[in-house]
Design a protein around this nucleic acid. Sequence first.
RNA 1: GCACCCUUAGCUCAGUUGGUAGAGCAGCGCAUUUACACUGCGAAGGUCGGGGGUUCGAAUCCCUCAGGGUGCACCA
Length: 735
Amino acid sequence: MDEKFLKPYDPGATESRVYAAWEESGLFNPDECIEQGVTAPDAKPYAIVLPPPNVTGRLHMGHALMLAVEDIFIRYKRMRGFRTLWLPGTDHAAIATQSVVEKQIKKDEGLSRHDLGREELLKRIEAFAVASHDTIISQLKTMGASLDWSREAFTLDETRSRAVRTVFKRMSDAGLIYRGLRIVNWDPKGQTTISDDEIVYEERPAKLYTFRYAKDFPIPIATTRPETKVGDVGVAVHPDDVRYKEFVGKEYDVVFCDVPIHIKIVADKEVDPEFGTGAVGLTPAHSKVDWEIADRHELSHETIIINEYAKMTVDGRLRDMKTTEARETVVEWLKSENLLEKEEDITQNIATAERTGGIVEPLPKLQWWVEVDKEVPGRGKTLKELMLEAVRSGEITILPEHFEKTYVHWIENLRDWCISRQIWYGHRIPVWYRGEEAVVGEAPEGDWARDGWVQDEDTLDTWFSSGLWTFSTLGWPEETNDFKIYHPTDLLETGYDILFFWIARMILMTEFTLGTIPFRAVYLHGLVRDAQGRKMSKSLGNNMDPLDVAAKFGADAARMALIVGNTPGTDMRISEDKIKGYKHFANKLWNIARFILEANTNAKSVPEKKNGSKTWPSGPERDHFSSREREILEQIDLLTKEVTVDIEEFRVYMAAEKIYHYAWHELADKILEESKPILAGSDEAAKDSRRTLLLTLLDRTLRLLHPFMPFVTEEIYQSMPTKDAKFLMVAKWPS
RNA sequence: GCACCCUUAGCUCAGUUGGUAGAGCAGCGCAUUUACACUGCGAAGGUCGGGGGUUCGAAUCCCUCAGGGUGCACCA
């Protein structure tokens, strides 16, 4: 027996050494597996692309969970002989990364991005992204992720950029991308547009003011934003509202807080007669709903009164005021003019930007959009319909199943997707202008800048490039072998919180570009919370760094703690106590191995089957076992079957628990205990038989447990007399 | 407002197609120069949120009520 078993199991010393050995073997790469005869050249492919972590810093426990789940499926399939590819990469995460770096520069140097300029800021962000990338890669390796590093991708590298330009061009040619002036969600803090999904609504107390534009104005108006009223062009009432019917169509000129405005009264069904006074002041340039109502009644939406910095642009006393100051000023003016009729406290849902926390200011802006309700040429369906169909038809299955309903509900409410951003880090919109001319896709030939061409200033929403991830990572638009072999991929595993952001966009982009699905199954994991059920966050200081956890308890323990009992789509709680329990389990397994290997050291020879295999006797080869031993073998056969089915049906949380329970409470507590008197006895045949049995059970347990706890199982396997492959990682899954 | 999820042992959660309620942790009693104290054995603990229905049989399926949570929309 190897002397290493005389000491307790030490994950710290073992895990990095084992990972290095795996990596050096090249066997994370499916081509190398075929090369080395581990995988059959005609084996069925199995592919997962890693959801690329943002290069914004470090990985958290949610990432660790994601890695554990994906690595389980990958290792399982690899052992089953599939041509298995797990493809790594990172995401430039445009807004997120830029805002982290901008904040840092502001803090350290007191400079804004405009002080630095586009080129210098990009240089700084890239340097940060590289450092962040390196940290992330080492974290991924620490967790034992068997990723094929030879294929690593980045959402902003040249291959992925070409994919982005190509898809943009194709969508544009198909008439699905357009440039349009619309009310967008403007984040004054981040100085960029954001999509509807990047908004977080927060409930806050607010005041609802009821006022009149002027003494002789016939209708009182309710508003929470009096400062915007200097931009009003009309008042809308419900068509059936008898209170106001007589005024519909009438027009008024008033001077409101120094600003002359012209108000026309219109009737529109959108207005809720129950709310406030039943009359809405229309500010088309600063409200989505007002813009739409104004459109229907041919009212102008050109009166802009708030700029990108959320400051007033009108003349008079409000000039250059922040909107919040202007609000107070207008209210004072209303009071002094005796126009304020009521002031009530209400709670309102205020739109804030997810990344910066800034209060979203609706502004009209010329932006790029993907049109979701227009028929896709050649498909006879809209993008929305294609997105729905992929899931409804069962081509893509989502786990847990009820998220399919959430997905459908979301798609049905989907509006056009705003894809342009006014930040600098990201894929620049691939459109070049010269006067009236415009070129889309690739830059004009030659030195286009000298020839008077100018590229669009904006960058693309980061999800535009992540939407292509399943095929851009495989080298598309080149017709690569990888693309032909591995697409569509088999599984996409990620947190349910990015179902809309990412999963939906991948389905959209892939259906459009390739006319197929990006993946066959979606496995959504829940949030990892702390022991009290709180979200992990920097401000609470309850963050766990996977690296620290691995250092303290071992990556194997962290993986088990994250997997066992954690059903898909459900949030989980993690504590050091739980992880510690699985550290103990790794040591338990270590001691089981010690006991069994020690017993076999005294054996005359390693038991061997006639066909040369040294493992899992079955059928007639079991005849020399006692009936109790045959019963034990049947029991582990049953376990093997159950674990296999559980993994196949995505119940990794049950599979992990079953093996754990078996190893500790059957193998160790019962079988080892009952073996002690036999091994100490004098019946040589019985001893031989029992030693073979125990070795078989250990071998089988290692194989079943390997996808879950790859390090300790590999380390024990290396000392097994039944070792039949270079690594347990590429040994055969029992069946 | 619309949709979805959850409610099971003190705590955290499992429970795949309906067939005698499970695990981990905590707690209680006992054992122990032992493969392993990173241990073992044992006992205790639940009218499965309330009510109704379907069924020979319901934690599981249907309806309803209550409490908790999440997503989407909207609040002018």
